[in-house]
């Protein structure tokens, strides 16, 4: 049995089955809270804890999947390239808004972490939580955070954005379609963008653009901000 559990195929099969279950569940009930990645994560962690199989055994196969993180991040250039043409008349407000949102997200994490004494590891893990998972997990690793915490924080952030974006826009009187899209993409990456696309075409396009720009901006500034503070 050990030989099977420690074979790469075990982790790969477990990941595929859990993810497929996650996708099926989220499609069936179509609720934003039912995120495929979160469901699959809970299924695998639950399975491993129940059977007593170690994370190391699972990750023999899991690491084969993780190798693909690098190409998965690189191809994000394709949607970013397609969206860059949307930076037309309002390119200055759009870029300034994305930078303001990204800085706000990082400033909140740093200020509150220092204030309540959350500890450096958690602060660094939460710092890139508003950007898309591929970029956020490598940024977290680079600055000394724990990527698994970052990935889950990013997912929760995305779900929050998707659920709360229309209410926040109403409450703060953010009525301009471009501004709504920028807010959603900057604060809650691809998960929020699905909601932005429901709100309208302009919001969807601006949100998609903001994902890539906010990700790049955060990747570049996060280490600089940390260096400036230390």
């Amino acid at each position: 049995m050990n030989a099977i559990v420690n074979s790469p195929l075990f982790g790969i099969l477990l990941s595929l089955m859990a993810f497929e279950a996650g996708v099926l569940i989220s499609r069936k009930w179509k609720h934003t809270l039912l995120n495929p990645l979160l469901i699959a994560n809970i299924l695998i962690v639950g399975f491993l804890l129940l059977t007593g199989i170690s994370f190391e055994s699972y990750n023999v196969g899991g690491s084969y999947i993780s190798v693909m993180l690098s190409p998965a991040t690189v191809v994000l250039a394709v949607p970013l390239y397609r969206q860059l043409s949307k930076l037309t008349r309002y390119w200055k407000p759009i870029l300034a808004g994305i930078f303001a949102g990204s800085l706000t997200s990082m400033a909140c994490v740093i200020a509150v972490s220092k204030l309540i004494g959350l500890g450096d590891t958690l602060m660094l893990s939460l710092l890139p939580k508003s950007i898309t998972i591929p970029m956020g997990s490598v940024v977290s690793e680079q600055i000394g955070g724990i990527p698994s915490i970052t990935i889950i924080a990013i997912t929760i952030t995305g779900i929050t954005g998707a659920v709360a974006a229309p209410a926040v826009c109403r409450f703060c009187r953010i009525k301009h379609k471009v501004a709504q899209g920028v807010a959603i993409g900057t604060a809650s990456h691809a998960l929020g963008t699905s909601k932005a696309m429901e709100m309208g075409e302009v919001q969807g396009a601006m949100s998609s653009l903001s994902i890539g720009v906010a990700g790049l901006f955060t990747a570049i500034t996060a280490p600089l901000i940390l260096a400036a503070l230390s």
Binding site: Y90, A100, G101, T104, K129, S130, I156, C172
Partner: peptide
């Protein structure tokens, strides 16, 4: 605590990002 912080920070980021963009537009 982490869950609460993630949700709270996201709401603030949404508001500030949207507000700044709209003001500048």
């Amino acid at each position: 605590l982490l869950l609460f912080l993630c949700i709270a920070f996201t709401l603030v980021t949404l508001a500030v990002g949207g507000f700044c963009t709209q003001f500048l537009i």
